[in-house]
């Protein structure tokens, strides 16, 4: 995972979003390379979601520049949409559909062909070891399985980048660890992973981490270097050191 040699797939330059008087995200400048796992940290209300929504093409930036997979966030949102995947903490699966119906649906709305969907479904179920559950309703799956399925579904259309918005909320540490194995697999295949989280053990798994405080990026580096820079033993302390300076209230 050589983050320095690969070309950048996410580039932002002074990316800013204002809501009236309030600047939710202020002059964000960073780059994320292909295949990198990029952690996006910050307390509630720090501006993570706003930043992520701009990158996904859901929110128009107020100023600044950004390209996602080579496409401009102002003018090429439709092309961006085709190149990214997205998973939220709600897992976003349909409870009343079976595992394979969920896969077929999400692959279908990205316009994948029928044979391709079949092939992908088989591959995905194998990777998750869920062949037997193909016809099970999602509502009957344990939480950890749902979460892993949701992640696999979010990259079923083979996007360049996948955005994960607090993907491990409410999941136990063991399942979380297994979930990260899936993330590493995806990263190895060249998928760039952009992940927000509140768990500092997860921050340690990332190649690089940015910490947002009050709408600006307060720190950005690999977990090891950040710990050195702040003279702390773990990311938890680094995060606390930065986040407590925040003046904004979380939501």
């Amino acid at each position: 995972m050589s983050s320095t040699t690969s070309p950048p797939v996410i580039t932002t330059e002074k990316l800013t979003k204002r809501f009236g008087q309030f600047t939710a995200a202020n002059e964000l400048t960073f780059q994320v390379s292909k295949g990198e796992i990029f952690g996006f940290l910050g307390a509630n209300g720090a501006g993570k979601t706003t930043a992520m929504r701009m990158l996904c093409g859901l929110l128009k930036p107020s100023s600044g520049k950004a390209t996602i997979a080579g496409f401009d966030v102002y003018t090429q949102t439709e092309k961006i949409k085709k190149s990214i995947g997205y998973m939220s903490q709600k897992f976003s699966l349909y409870d009343d559909l079976t595992v394979s119906e969920n896969i077929r649906f999400y692959a279908g709305i990205y316009g994948m062909s029928r044979p391709k969907i079949k092939e992908k479904t088989k591959e995905l179920l194998e990777e998750l070891q869920m062949e037997k559950e193909a016809k099970t309703l999602v509502s009957e799956l344990p939480l950890g399985w749902k979460q892993k399925l949701a992640f696999s579904v979010s990259i079923v259309h083979e996007p360049d980048i996948v955005f994960l918005d607090e993907p491990t909320g409410g999941v136990d540490p063991v399942t979380r660890r297994q979930f990260w194995d899936l993330i590493y697999n995806a990263s190895d295949r060249g998928v760039t992973v952009f992940v927000t989280t509140h768990y500092m053990d997860e921050a340690e798994y990332c190649n690089r981490v940015s910490i947002m405080v009050d709408g600006v990026i307060a720190a950005l580096d690999s977990p090891t270097r950040l710990k050195q820079q702040f003279g702390r033993d773990n990311m938890e302390e680094v995060f606390y050191e930065l986040a407590r300076k925040a003046t904004r209230q979380g939501d």
Partner: peptide, 13 residues
């Protein structure tokens, strides 16, 4: 409520 709307909005659909 399910959060699937977000996914749909992010998708090219």
């Amino acid at each position: 409520e399910l959060g699937t709307m977000e996914i749909l909005l992010v998708s090219p659909f």
